[in-house]
Deep mutational scan, measured.
Amino acid sequence: MDVFMKGLSKAKEGVVAAAEKTKQGVAEAAGKTKEGVLYVGSKTKEGVVHGVATVAEKTKEQVTNVGGAVVTGVTAVAQKTVEGAGSIAAATGFVKKDQLGKNEEGAPQEGILEDMPVDPDNEAYEMPSEEGYQDYEPEA
Rank of each mutant, 00 (worst) to 15 (best):
M1G: 00
M1Q: 00
D2W: 02
V3I: 03
K6E: 02
K6D: 03
S9P: 00
A11W: 15
G14E: 11
V16P: 00
V16R: 08
A19I: 04
A19N: 00
T22G: 03
K23L: 13
A30M: 14
A30N: 00
K32Y: 09
K32M: 11
K34P: 00
E35C: 12
G36H: 15
V37G: 01
G41E: 01
S42F: 13
S42E: 13
K43Q: 04
E46A: 12
V48H: 00
G51P: 01
G51N: 06
V52S: 02
V55E: 00
A56Y: 09
E57L: 08
K58G: 00
K58V: 09
K58M: 15
K60G: 03
E61R: 07
N65F: 09
V66K: 03
G67A: 13
G68Q: 03
A69R: 13
V71Q: 03
V74F: 14
T75D: 03
T75K: 13
A76D: 03
V77W: 15
V77C: 09
V77A: 08
V77Y: 12
A78H: 04
A78D: 01
Q79L: 13
Q79H: 06
T81A: 13
V82C: 06
E83C: 04
G84Q: 11
A85E: 02
A85L: 14
G86W: 15
S87T: 07
A91P: 04
T92L: 13
G93A: 12
F94R: 01
F94M: 02
V95H: 07
K97T: 07
K97A: 10
E105G: 07
G106T: 06
A107Y: 05
Q109R: 11
E110C: 07
I112C: 05
L113P: 10
D115H: 13
D115V: 11
P117L: 03
P117D: 06
V118D: 10
D119C: 12
P120K: 07
N122P: 07
N122D: 10
A124K: 14
E126T: 07
E126Q: 03
P128E: 06
P128M: 12
E130T: 05
E130L: 07
E131T: 10
G132C: 12
G132I: 13
Y136W: 12
A140M: 07
A140L: 10
A140D: 13
